[in-house]
């Protein structure tokens, strides 16, 4: 036992070691953009409470080409979030048993993505209805 001297390897840069971990970190990084979008909306609500002129300024800011470009990127990042959220779903939710058989993971992912597509379409349709 005198010679027992274990070697502990460093965890530095662990997430670069495997493509699986790079995808994981990309998934986690979407959180920064979810926060950024929520703060943009919060700013909008605060400006709304300050009156028409203030809210107009907030709207003008959104029409800035940089803002449009940022929101196009945000849209893609949110879509990645949706995809990654439902892809891990079969592992994070309790098993679903249908007719005595466990629902396969791919089916759970597909159902989640379908639910997101329907919810998003319904939301856009609702906004269009408000506008009409």
């Amino acid at each position: 036992m005198a010679l027992r001297r274990t070697y502990v390897r460093s965890m530095d840069g662990w997430w670069r070691r495997d493509p699986f971990f790079i995808h994981y970190m990309a998934r986690e990084a979407t959180a920064v953009f979810v926060v950024a979008y929520a703060l943009i909306l919060l700013a909008g609500v605060i400006r709304l409470s300050q009156g028409e002129a203030a809210f107009g300024e907030w709207l003008e800011g959104l029409a800035n080409p940089w803002s449009i470009a940022f929101h196009v990127a945000l849209c893609a990042i949110f879509a990645y979030h949706t995809w990654s959220w439902f892809r891990i779903m079969p592992k994070t939710m309790p098993p679903v048993v249908v007719g005595g058989r466990r629902l396969p993971g791919a089916a759970i992912t597909a159902l989640g993505l379908a639910a997101a597509a329907i919810a998003s379409a319904a939301f856009v349709a609702f906004v269009a209805w408000l506008a009409s």
Binding site: D18, F20, F21, Y24, E28, I88, K91, T92
Partner: peptide, 9 residues
């Protein structure tokens, strides 16, 4: 756990 999911893979 942060649901990395690699354990199951």
């Amino acid at each position: 756990c942060t649901a990395v999911g690699y354990c199951s893979e």
